[in-house]
Design a protein around this nucleic acid. Sequence first.
DNA 1: TCATTAAATTGTT
DNA 2: AACAATTTAATGA
Length: 239
Amino acid sequence: MISARGNPLSTDRTRQSAIDEILRQSVWTRELGPEEFRKVRETVVEQSLPAGCHACRNGDPAEHWIGVIDGLIKISGGSADGKSVTFTGVTAGGWFGEGSLLKDEPRRYDGIAVCNTRIARMPRSTFTWLLDNSIPFNRFLLNQLNERLGLFIAMVGYDRLLKPEARVARCLATLFNPYLNPNSDQCLQLSQEEAALLCGMSRQRVNQALHTLEKENLLSAEYGQITILDLARLRSYGE
DNA sequence: TCATTAAATTGTT
DNA sequence: AACAATTTAATGA
């Protein structure tokens, strides 16, 4: 896995297989016809992003729909006083950035690699072609937007109704939404500081909450990574 | 391979 | 926010 990532010696064949990998893992490719699938496969390109690099930047023109092959991209925005807010994370098999493509506007948010991450870029031309030609693709997008809306509504609820432990548990669980992030790895490569940004809490409080959740065998917190052990109970934690 | 050091992350107040 | 402790990664003998 690691050896192929960012390796300048990797062949075209290994590059193409990474594209095949994410297309296999993605929900929206399952209903495409052969012609549609071929067009997608021929135009999507892979890119390796070291931790901290931008997949897309607030204000830049939007030329691609972006999928995550492996790793973790955080969707964040900067506030006026220089602080940044993390809205959500996208993991393996998830795609993002369609909002700017649909509106034909510059990017509204930053997409930043939290750990070393490989992404796939679909050119705008392919994206609009799918919109014009594939009903399954349109159905997928509609569902994805609906899932996202549900996700953000749920997160507002977590903020107001749940104790810190439950907020951490459920925020982490959202990274495993089967529709938005269908192939998320149980092992999340992120520091507690990043986890805190994702949960909208202080690092100290997240640190404390992680200890509690670890004692209950729901996850294991290691140096620079969190491994999910019981996703079902994290999802419903605090009920 | 091992020791040293800097940087990142975690634990705690 | 600050500080100490711990872990990792990089370096060179």
